[in-house]
Design a protein around this nucleic acid. Structure first.
Lengths: 348, 348
DNA sequence: ACGAGGTGATGAAACGTTTCATATGTTCGT
DNA sequence: ACGAACATATGAAACGTTTCATCACCTCGT
């Protein structure tokens, strides 16, 4: 079935011109006389010619696509970041391809291998793993522009955009403290993710000496992991059980909410929950979820701008680290004050 | 900064062999003597050589990637389909790139243009638009294997995987009829999407002569569009207002739920809601959402299998149309019986 | 000692573009 | 009428691979 793809040569032949002229029609149409141009365009139409991008790239040295490697395509947070990146890339006629690492270092590595083989223009990435000798460092060292997304960076060899996760964690925990919670659980993981660690650090700093932060590490940032963590919490002996849960993202928080509800633990009366990301579904949850909001689309846009700047400006480019401020959105899941002494009879 | 990328030639030189030998080390290592092979591998390591995929593809004629073009990356439904596709592709060492049409025919076209220029192996797509002369038909006619996803097809020139949307619509509407709803609204759009039309047709068929299906067309399948539609419904004079809403997908349904709740219309007491897709967030919604479940991941897996079969088997391949059965999941948003005469005093 | 067969390595062709120096007219100003 | 200047079109080189026919060498069996 597969047709013998037609090449520029056949177009040239059909239009009665040289291949150089066909190429000019495609790339600098003003250099060729209108009559000839039309003849070539007709030939292209008749033959159904489609330019071979491999050949073009081979000659040009670089492709026109930029890649974004995300931790989880199923997470609405990243969907919005991607959307922002796409909008910005579209402005300059670029294309964005989305790669999903699924929080798996091996898959991340595989993707980076392939992207480098493809000579992508640049990479936006929220890395799973990143150390001094990481695959990512290699990529950068060999000259591919990279922008870190949702990840602060002390690195001087790349740009980054991020939201202040320490502050976000502090906001969430401070809010819970104001509601008189002293025993708080932090649900998040894997701890190797910088975001997870930072949010925890922020929370810890806001809790102070008279409060307690119990950390429950999860394998992934998913609804399922949240349910498992909630199970652990609910199974604790009553006196040890925290009265509030702060989750590293909304997927976890929704999982915690589901599991608690299923077990008859009432939210927020028996336990308060605060999530992170403020995804669209947080407000629509069974108990509307308090969450720390990040400028998701903006993150994608800014990251892409930085990347494009590095790609185009080459010499002059200065690496920058842009940090946005998060914002706490209080909803029902954490809003009713918690009454310690009279739990059994407390109402409303 | 950008290094002059090293090529196979420099590796050959460094290892003291011909470029043919280097290529053999890369592609058929067993053909080359262990000592030589090691020498080449060392050179590759020292130089940080990365194969140029453009050149390889140019020679090979085709790339090793398959593409999936979805209507909306932010829709968890597609996220799961993508995941299924990735799993299947990974088995055979393939790569999946995700393209987002955003329900916009122009963007879809642009993506297909680029994908064809890149000579992708094949395309999985849920088309926005598809007619006898569509861009998609051209692509197929020129020999690129295509599998339609979530879209039944009478077409004989391609495979398809789909869920029986007419049946799904019928299940949903029949369920609402059983709850004694006679005036039902169908919220969905754009009507040009086959899924939207089919689900409506199914619903209509289940309603029968004594029921009424009021159709409210939306511009997109998003939460925001759902809210707007809910506004329209709530604004209707009381006697015309439907007592149940069936939505073409869960995003719409969640939007309807949010807007109704905000306006003080109680769900399911004042109005029942049934969604479609049963995304993970449906069960976690403010009022757990009844929905029509589709085997999302399976859809992606099967589609990829069909595509790979066509890619590899070339001659022998027979186009197939796989149809899965949907399944109604009843939750609270539609489960309490609706009491017509005594609405004001009805409880539980 | 000789050819057959096998193992390893080589060199050149080919893939489809883009680019650039060159060639061929055409038009103008003087 | 003559070169200058300009507008168009051309042909060949180059991009980095893979592939394939060929070659050089070695080992055996006779």
């Amino acid at each position: 079935m597969s047709m013998p793809t037609t090449s520029i040569k056949e177009v040239a032949q059909r239009a009665g011109v040289s291949i150089g002229t066909v190429s000019n029609v495609l790339n600098r149409p003003n250099l060729v006389a209108p009559a000839t141009r039309q003849r070539v365009l007709d030939a292209i139409g008749q033959l159904g010619y489609v330019r071979n991008d491999s050949a073009r790239q081979l000659r040009a040295g670089r492709s026109r696509t930029i890649a974004i490697v995300v931790l989880d395509v199923a997470n609405p947070f990243f969907a919005d970041v991607v959307r922002g990146a796409e909008m910005e890339a579209e402005k300059v006629g670029g294309v964005v391809v989305v790669c999903n690492s699924g929080e798996d270092p091996t898959r991340e590595r595989r993707h980076l291998d392939i992207l480098e083989e493809q000579r992508v223009q640049g990479v936006l990435i929220t890395p799973v793993h990143d150390g001094p000798d990481s695959r990512l460092e290699q990529l950068i060292a060999r000259g591919t522009p990279v922008v870190l997304v949702d990840r602060g960076s002390g690195h001087h060899n790349r740009c980054s955009v991020a939201v202040d996760d320490v502050l976000g964690g502090r906001l969430a925990a401070a809010h819970l403290r104001e509601q008189e919670h002293t025993s708080i659980a932090y649900v998040g993981g894997p701890a190797s993710l910088r975001q997870v660690a930072d949010r925890q650090a922020g929370a810890a700093s806001a809790i102070g000496a008279d409060g307690e932060l119990r950390v429950i590490e999860t394998a992934t940032l998913s609804v399922a992991a949240g349910r498992r963590a909630a199970g652990e919490i609910a199974d604790l002996p009553a006196r040890q059980r925290p009265t509030a849960v702060f989750c590293a993202n909304d997927l976890l928080a929704l999982g915690v909410l589901q599991e608690m509800t299923q077990r008859g633990v009432r939210v927020p009366r028996d336990i308060a929950i605060v999530g992170y990301d403020d995804i669209e579904f947080a407000a629509a949850a069974a108990v509307p979820l308090s969450s720390v909001r990040q400028p998701r689309e903006q993150l994608g846009r800014t990251a892409t701008q930085l990347l494009l700047d590095e790609i185009n400006d080459h010499g002059r480019h200065q690496h920058r680290h842009v940090v946005f401020q998060p914002e706490l959105v209080v909803r029902e899941s954490s809003s009713r004050p918690y009454r310690r002494p009279a739990r059994a009879t407390a109402r409303g």
